[in-house]
Nucleic acid binder design. Structure first.
Length: 923
RNA sequence: GCCGGUGUGGCGGAAUGGUAGACGCGGCGGACUCAAAAUCCGCUUGUGGUGACACAGUGGAGGUUCGAGUCCUCUCACCGGUACCA
């Protein structure tokens, strides 16, 4: 049994004289050394062998690994090792999403260059990952801030420009008037700049966009081809894309001029339009403001505040009459045009028709500004009432045309006071309580009275298409992807601005456009914007003097195609043929916070790569798992000024009463009480982050891995709790002891199923049931927590299985060997060591086949059935598995408990679910 | 505001329409020990009862079903996203 592990363990220290004790640090160092020496997880393409590409979202190198990373990469590592044990050629890469805003903030704080800070973080975090024992193919590692990565992104962008898929237009940003800089939404707090405290303004600047809207339909349809993605993610993406079918209707302006276009999904409510609302940025509003100082002041006021949707949609609805009027295309009535702060220039046409009777937001606006409300849609009960009072035309509801449309239906109208109340009540609610927004039947709509939604839609669409004042249109909520950032630490946008030729893509032979890394960084202005020498260049078209674009790309650009680059390390092109061996990603793992933006750009970019002929598939990843956050208790003390000082959970001791309920907490250093602030996402601001490195130093990587997989199912949030971690350490110690004790005993025999007694059979059945459950839990359900629970139960059972007979030892040996393999994906270091303890030569354990279920071992003689009376449990019965329904029913009815509850009742029905339940329905 | 999700013992969680609380933590009791730690064993949803047992119970209110933590409707609370945080 000479192995590097045992050699390593042969020199027990004085403090720990037990040479069979589990020492995670030694075990883990030895296993990692062996894997590195073997290059155990470096892979190449093996045509003919099933591949499995397991990808975890690449980290931003923020400084140190946090528990969220540990959770993410442990899930990926478990799946990777498991899949390799199923015989697949597994690729699991890792890299760094290295551009981004935090590097600039750190650079200001620490007076260093963003590049230097970033590279130092990468070194540190890589070492931390390696200590966790992840089976990454490190030969494929890259950082996205390196020119040999971003050159491909720049080349792709210049090609998209030539295809017309990249273009420039004005867009609104947050502007800090003091620092004279653009702010990210995150940097706007309560409408003010986070550093200056100045009121933020909206400002329009030219920006580069990618035409993701050209792919909207494909991005929508593609979701149906992704059964391996969570429904929640697909639903969110569908809603984000927001396909809607409607009409674009042109309202002529009073006094002539360009008509005002609106988009509506509810043309059936057209006769209920009482005003039009336009965005403050709409050209019509701008024009009206020229000779209307009050309106100009109002529009200027709307410029205050940030541009985020959450901020815009939660502010009070406000508006002002422009004084302009449009002409209703059917009735010819004058319709006033208002500027409203809730109409967004970026969605649809920047103008909407307002129907206060049947749209809640318009209703609230109309109430606030005393604008008229009209009922033009009614439900079936009102329709019936209208039919009954069809002779009472003078009542002011309905109309001749509508009633004519209803003439076909023969109704006896006697007393109309009851139906009249129905109609009046419906109309009163619309006028006084709330808009009625469901679909129904048109009234008060002239020739369209009596039509339902579809027929009204068709009739109006046909009419407008004929007279040229409107058309059917598909509208998307999705907007084109703005990729310009006015920041330094990002990939330079490869464009040259020439006064004569316009925007010219940098020729491919002049790429990459390099970002200088050795710069002084103050945070106020980007060093490349401040450096005239960097900007200055010549136009590749005309040879005249020109300037470089100084904006950089959104960092989502780098993270949209990194998965493809891992397949083709060193390729001169963005990816090469190897991509089509590995892609698509078989399992993608990352946080749910990326459900929309990153995962949509990721899917979009894959289609861009496909349309460049670089990849052959339509979607980048077939299966997606979104893990929850890592959270922890928070502790604080209130300072005299009301601010809070937060204490790390590691420095706090929790107090409990006799029942184990938490009663309070004290700081370990001074013994004085601290307040418990609730369980929140681990963060620097609440100081409740638990450092993975300190946990690894204290318990070992396997224990940390085990806890993060056991404490919650992967999709849910995981509460870090050190007592729970200790429990995992206890389990590994017991496992180690059980295996070493067994290996140190007499030689074992091979299991002979015919020789087993009842106890041995039961032990072996539990083993094979566990193999079955663990295989399904890891392979299909990704329920790692219940897989581990089943293995804990198995170890508990083995601890009580005191059978020292030959067959008893044989069963134990089979069980322990299987357990080492079943636990290997989660705790690979201890498994690596114990495999050798069990007498095997040192090896890469992922090349051992996964344990197989012996169907014969699963066979049971009897089954336990629950017996219910009227759905309530009244006992259980044990009977042979092949017993019939009658037998089960008879035995159930014979139970004393059951007879007691059936006394004086008549049995009406008996439901028998074989192997599960007998329910006697009586009354 | 809008979109998506979550809610079960003292705590993390289990239960894939069929015995609610597996497994782990904490707590209580016991063994071992001079003692402590470590380890091992037992108990541990609540209420009533010596007990067998009964009743209640999965955020709240309704509903479907022989049977609902699970499916449906409404509602409350919290979490994620909301296009320039990543």
């Amino acid at each position: 049994m000479a192995s590097e592990i045992m050699q390593d363990n042969q020199a027990p220290t004085a403090a720990d004289p037990d040479e069979t004790a589990y020492r995670p640090q030694a075990v883990e160092a030895a296993a990692q050394q062996y894997w590195n020496a073997q290059r155990a997880y470096e892979v190449t393409e093996q045509p003919g062998k099933a591949k499995f590409y397991c990808l975890s979202m690449l980290p931003y190198p923020s400084g140190a690994l946090h528990m969220g990373h540990v959770r993410n990469y442990t899930i990926g590592d478990v799946i990777s090792r498991f899949q390799r044990m199923q015989g697949r050629n597994v690729l699991q890469p890792m890299g760094w999403d290295a551009f981004g805003l935090p590097a600039e903030n750190a650079a200001i704080k620490h007076k260093t260059a963003p590049a230097k800070w970033t590279y130092a973080n990468i070194e540190h975090m890589r070492a931390q990952m390696q200590a966790m024992g992840y089976a990454f193919d490190w030969s494929r590692e890259f950082a996205t801030c390196r020119p040999d990565y971003y050159v491909h992104e720049q080349r792709m962008f210049t090609r998209l420009m030539k295809k017309g898929l990249a273009y420039r237009k004005n867009a609104v940003v947050n502007w800090d008037p003091v620092d004279q800089t653009v702010l990210a939404n995150e940097q706007v707090i309560d409408g003010r700049g986070w550093r200056t405290g100045a009121l933020v303004e909206k400002r329009e600047i030219p920006q580069w966009f990618l035409k993701i809207t050209d792919y909207a339909q494909e991005l929508l349809d593609g979701l149906d081809a992704l059964p391996g993605w969570p429904d929640a993610v697909k639903t969110m993406q569908r809603n984000w894309l927001g396909r809607s079918e409607g009409l674009e209707i042109r309202f002529a302006l009073e006094g002539g001029g360009e008509p005002l276009s609106v988009f509506t999904t509810r043309p059936d409510t057209l006769m209920g339009v009482t005003f039009l609302s336009i965005a403050a940025e709409h050209p019509l509003a701008q024009r009206a403001a020229l000779d209307n100082p009050k309106l100009a002041a109002f529009i200027a006021e709307l410029k205050h505040g940030g541009v985020s949707e959450a901020e815009l949609e939660t502010q009070d609805k406000r508006g002002m009459d422009t004084g302009l009027c449009a002409i209703h295309p059917i009735s010819g009535e004058r319709v006033p045009i208002w500027v409203a702060n809730f109409v967004l220039m970026g969605y649809g046409t920047g103008a909407v028709m307002a129907v206060p009777g049947h749209d809640q937001r318009d209703w609230e606006f109309a109430q606030k500004y005393s604008l008229p409300i009209r009922m033009v849609i009614v439900d079936d009960s009102v329709l019936d009432a209208l039919k009954q009072i069809r002779h009472e035309l003078a009542l002011g509801v309905g109309s001749d045309a509508m009633l004519a449309a209803l003439e076909g239906r023969d109704i006896d109208a006697q007393d109309v006071s009851a139906p009249l109340r129905v109609v009046q009540e419906f109309e009163r609610r619309i006028m006084e309580e709330a808009a009625w927004t469901a679909r129904g039947t048109l009234v008060n709509s002239g020739e369209y009275d009596g039509l339902d939604f579809e027929r009204a839609f068709d009739a109006l669409a046909t009419r407008f298409e004929r007279d040229g004042s409107g058309a059917r249109r598909v509208n998307w909520r999705l907007r084109d992807w703005g990729v310009s950032r006015q920041r330094y630490w990002g990939c330079p946008i490869p464009v040259i601005r020439c006064a004569a030729c316009g925007d010219v893509p940098v020729p491919e032979d002049q790429l990459p456009v390099l970002l200088p890394e050795d710069v002084a960084f103050s945070g106020v202005q980007s060093p490349i914007k401040a450096d005239p020498a960097w900007r200055q260049t010549t136009c590749p078209n005309c040879g005249g003097a020109a300037e470089r674009e100084t904006d950089t790309f959104d960092t989502f650009m780098e993270s949209s195609w990194y998965y493809a680059r891992y397949t083709s390390p060193g390729a001169a092109t963005q990816v090469d043929d190897r991509a089509n061996y590995w892609l698509p990603v078989d399992q993608y793992i990352g946080g749910i916070e990326h459900a929309i933006l990153h995962l949509l750009y990721f899917r979009f970019y894959h289609k861009l790569l496909r349309d460049e002929g670089l990849v052959a598939t339509d979607e980048p990843a077939t299966n997606l798992l979104c893990q929850g956050m890592v959270i922890a208790e928070t502790f604080y003390r209130e300072n005299a000024d009301g601010s809070r000082e937060w204490f790390n959970p590691a420095d706090v001791e929790v107090q409990r009463d006799d029942h184990g309920r938490v009663t309070g907490a004290r700081l370990k250093t001074d013994g004085q009480p601290v307040r418990i602030g609730g369980i929140e996402k681990m963060s620097k601001s609440k100081n409740n982050g638990v450092d993975p490195q300190s946990m690894v130093a204290k318990y070992g990587a396997d224990t940390v891995r085990l806890f993060s997989m056991f404490a919650a199912p992967p999709e849910q949030s995981l509460e870090w709790n050190e007592a729970g971690v200790e429990g995992m350490a206890r389990f590994l110690k017991r496992f180690w002891r059980e295996v070493t004790a067994h290996a140190g005993g007499p030689d074992h025999a091979v299991v002979d199923p015919a020789e087993l007694d009842a106890g041995q059979k039961a032990m072996r059945r539990q083993l094979h049931e566990t193999i079955q459950k663990v295989s399904d839990d890891i392979g299909r359900r990704h329920a790692f927590n219940t897989a581990i629970a089943a293995l804990m139960e198995l170890l508990n059972a083995l601890g009580k299985f005191a059978d020292a007979s030959e067959q008893g030892r044989a069963v134990r040996h089979e069980a322990l060997e299987a357990m080492v393999l079943l636990l290997n994906p989660v705790v690979p270091h201890i498994s690596h060591a114990l495999w050798q303890v069990l007498g095997h030569p040192v090896t890469v354990l992922e090349d051992q086949p996964w344990p197989r279920v012996d169907p014969a071992a699963l066979v049971r003689d009897t089954a336990t059935l629950a017996v219910q009376v009227n759905g309530k449990l009244r006992g259980t019965i044990e009977l042979p598995v092949n017993a019939g329904k009658d037998e089960a029913e008879a035995l159930a009815r014979a139970q004393p408990q059951v007879r007691q509850f059936l006394e004086g009742m008549t049995v009406r029905k008996v439901i028998v679910v074989p192997g599960k339940i007998v329910n006697i329905v009586a009354g």
